[in-house]
Design a protein around this nucleic acid. Structure first.
Lengths: 318, 318
DNA sequence: CTGTTAGCGCATTCAC
DNA sequence: GTGAATGCGCTAACAG
């Protein structure tokens, strides 16, 4: 490990002053071309890299954005994260990723840490019952994902469109007894918004709703299936692919595989295990990218207008 | 955004010198208790947070470790990552996480970026055909995960033990026609090591091996199942749970659910979809933690001994 | 035990 | 156009 060169070393090597090197580094226009070339040559030759820490200290910015996801193991979240990271890194930012594990307390703890780290901004993946007010110290440099918010820029999924598309698909196929499995309505998006869309569809299409809620887990969905079934049931729409997997498994066990299944999230596993199931692609990857772009725009342009973006979705059929 | 306080502000507020505040911050023993209390009170009262950038600059360390995973969507990797991050953050380090997507080229590009970012160390998740020499510029501050290496500290999984445990389980249950589905043997761990263990078990137990290889995907495993089956087959062991899911699905379709299934990785989905399947818990989470601890130890103690750790595994039965 | 001093590497004045 | 000087917030060496 040879000691890294500093801007001063380069200056001496090039026979100029520190500030000239600094100007070259920062693409300052007022440097004579010949001087610039000379300095740049020395820089390239030694593979000199300006210290990020020193820059950060000088600029009072860390060049790091905090990202709080609920669970890395969640398909939706790690897909969005992938899109998000690419964008961030491309722009020279680092990301500090932490898991809230659906706990407001942990989220708060992480926000405290991130505050201490002096992150330049926050991208927060919302979850049931999260308190967005905790983001206040970072305002307006934060973007929330997967939930709506008036106070912060947000990127959300088209919950209503997703449910409507699946319902419409089944309806066109002739289903008239479409049940719905959702989650707790205190969850405003996956819970409330999606079940509302279901009920609204039923209302406008003269269907009698058959709705049940359970925990967001394979086993819960499996168990809940029985509460949903009637002899006439011809389709079941689920608020997520995880639920759909649980339900489909139960239907398989019950030998009621004639019942159509619809999910939301376009999870590989659902397609593979139950190829006849349909699902909605919510655009996780793009949503992640968009969230990052939004944040960076806020950081750079000092834009203070709060933007809200709803990611378009589309149905995926076998 | 009120301007953050500095150590000097605190010093003035507490009526002491800067260095005393610094000492309190760094838990330096030689500060009178009463003084410490006074300073601490001011710190707490104002919620003062020392600037990480300044510290990093002073210490000539960025406080960031680079983490290169293959795919965030991989269950094994994001589980290990969770363990890893907790450890890292607990010790005050940040992580810069990037995806190689199983491409040496992308990995190299990321390593270059990380080098430029002046990261203090690297944790690298190995994949088939990765070239660990690319890590040389970071030596000895790197740890590789999931692959063996002589040159770097490593944390690897007990590939042989995992296969042996599943084989042994089935053997004790009376199975004598145990087939194995693996992947390309150019993959030294999941591919070669696991199939070798299978063959070795067959040899020592007088079983005739029935081995096939395919891509690491649900569909490939599904299709490959037919190449594996004979009328006598009574169990199929797979090099991973993903493969096991594919195989189990195929067996279900073929109505040969009397054949036992064994996987490696202890994936939730396998347990749920095919409760009768057995799997081996490889200890992803702990391995991640361990890798982080190893790296931090190298960074702190300047230990130069190269450590190799094999994560213990255990069978999980219904 | 505690205050003073001197940089860490860089970007930004301000002179020339 | 360019160099010298200044200070970002913090820690370590040196005095008391």
């Amino acid at each position: 490990m040879t000691k890294p060169l500093t801007i001063l070393d380069i200056a001496r090597l090039a026979g100029v002053g520190k500030s000239t090197v600094s100007r070259v580094l920062n693409h300052d226009a007022r440097v004579k071309d010949s001087t610039r070339a000379k300095v740049q040559a020395v820089i390239d030759q030694h593979g000199f890299l300006p210290s990020k820490s020193a820059r950060a200290m000088r600029a009072q910015r860390s060049g790091v954005v905090g990202v709080i996801v609920a669970k890395l193991s969640s398909n939706s979240e790690n897909t969005a994260l992938t899109g998000l990271l690419n964008t961030l890194y491309a722009k020279g930012y680092d990301a500090a990723i932490m898991e809230s594990q659906f706990s407001q307390q942990k989220a708060q703890a992480h926000l405290d840490v991130l505050k201490r780290r002096n992150v330049d901004g926050i991208i927060f993946f919302g979850f049931s019952g999260c308190d967005l007010n905790a983001l206040a110290p970072f305002a307006p440099n934060c973007v929330v994902l997967a939930v709506d918010s008036e106070q912060y820029a947000s990127v959300s999924y088209d919950n209503q469109g997703a449910v409507t598309q699946v319902m419409d698909h089944f309806y066109r196929q002739g289903c008239r007894h479409i049940a719905f499995l959702g989650i707790d309505e205190r969850d405003e998006t996956t819970g409330l918004a999606r079940s509302d869309a279901y009920q609204h569809f039923c209302q406008t299409h003269q269907l009698s709703p058959q709705l049940h809620r359970c925990e967001m887990s394979l086993h819960a969905a499996y168990a809940a299936t029985d509460c949903l079934l009637t002899p006439q049931t011809d389709a079941i729409v689920c608020a997520s692919d995880t639920l759909a997997l649980g339900v489909a498994k139960r239907l398989q066990t019950l030998n009621r595989e004639n019942i159509a299944i619809g999910g939301i999230g376009n999870h590989d596993m659902l397609r593979f295990m139950f190829p006849r199931a349909v699902s909605v692609e919510l655009g996780y990857h793009q949503a992640g990218q968009h969230a990052a772009e939004l944040l960076l725009k806020q950081l750079d342009d000092e834009v203070t207008t709060i933007t809200h973006w709803t990611q378009p979705c589309h149905l995926v059929t076998p």
